[in-house]
């Protein structure tokens, strides 16, 4: 995503928030008569609800289209899926899929806009935007800040969207986690990749704590959750050593006592609920943007 677009969307989200999320609906009905389809090919509660609220606050009709099971089992190709979706004749498709690239391929095949609500290990763009927004609100800038992302980087779409977003806006990013779960081949002058958490936290302005996907971890050969926590968990002790100015974020839902301690969550409760609000705001900005600046008229 180009810098200008990220800035536009974050600005849009800030405006939405300044007006009050619900206010837009009552005042402008910006997307009245437009329809948004949430196509979630992978179970999700938070993101789906967030898009649903965003659409409704803008006055759009929101349809949820949840499906499970692979297309292979259903004997369906991607083209078949696209035809089904096009037949619904809607204005924008919001797609979440467990396989990287499916939203991109579907977007090439349909004429209406597609928003990627998270695909495989690839990207989760609106999550990246809301994290940018959250840090920007707290610190007033992104340029020159240090973001630390800790967890299973290799299998995280959140890590990728945060990484590209913050790098594009001039931040320094450190990726930290078990070495077998770190990318081996990325190079950027403001990117550092390391297995050593204490080292990484020294300069942190914000820490993004990734959710550990327990079902995947067994494949990566980690000995135990206790061992993960001992090395990479944001424990109470580690959190206390961080200055009060350091933001601790988590995309949720949290595994308490694994990647983050309950006590740390108490400290960051306001932060994490702010992320939820910001999620709705950036999704409202994104929906407005893809529907062609409908809110300007």
């Amino acid at each position: 995503m180009p810098r200008a677009l990220i800035e536009d969307l974050v600005d849009g989200a800030l405006r939405v928030k300044a007006e009050g999320l619900g206010a837009v609906r009552s005042r402008r009905q910006a997307l009245a008569g437009r329809s948004v389809v949430n196509c979630f090919f992978e179970p999700s509660t938070r993101t789906k609800t967030s898009f649903e609220l965003a659409g409704k606050y803008l006055g759009a009709d929101v349809v949820n289209f949840q499906t499970r099971g692979s297309s292979l089992e259903k004997g369906e190709t991607l083209e078949d899926t696209v035809r089904t979706l096009e037949a619904l004749a809607l204005d924008v498709l919001v797609i979440r899929h467990a396989v990287s690239g499916v939203p991109e391929r579907l977007a090439q095949a349909v004429t209406i806009p597609v928003i990627n609500a998270g695909d495989g290990f690839h990207e989760h763009p609106t999550q990246g935007l809301l994290d940018v927004l959250t840090v920007y609100e707290a610190r007033g800038r992104i340029d020159g800040l240090h973001l630390v992302i800790v967890g299973d980087i290799l299998h995280s779409r959140v890590a990728r969207s945060d990484l590209w977003g913050f790098l594009t806006l001039g931040a320094y990013v450190t990726l930290v986690g078990p070495p077998q779960l770190l990318p081996s081949a990325w190079h950027h002058e403001r990117l550092r990749v390391t297995p050593y958490l204490a080292d990484a936290l020294k300069e942190a302005d914000a820490v993004q704590v990734l959710r550990i996907q327990k079902e995947r971890q067994s494949l990566a050969g980690l000995p135990s959750w206790e061992e993960y926590r001992a090395q990479w968990g944001i424990t109470r002790e580690r959190a206390e050593q961080l200055g009060d100015h350091v933001l601790i974020m988590h995309p949720g839902p949290q595994n308490r006592g694994v990647e983050i301690d309950s006590e740390v969550m108490m400290r960051t409760a306001s932060q994490i609920s702010r992320q939820v609000t910001n999620g709705v705001a950036v999704r409202m900005a994104a929906l407005s943007w893809v529907l062609g600046g409908a809110d300007e008229h």
């Binding site: 990287s100 690239g101 495989g120 990207e123 990318p183 081996s184 081949a185 990325w186 190079h187």
Partner: peptide, 12 residues
């Protein structure tokens, strides 16, 4: 192939 592009695209 395990490499920068696959990791960026999120393909194992």
């Amino acid at each position: 192939n395990e490499g920068a592009l696959a990791q960026q695209l999120g393909l194992p």
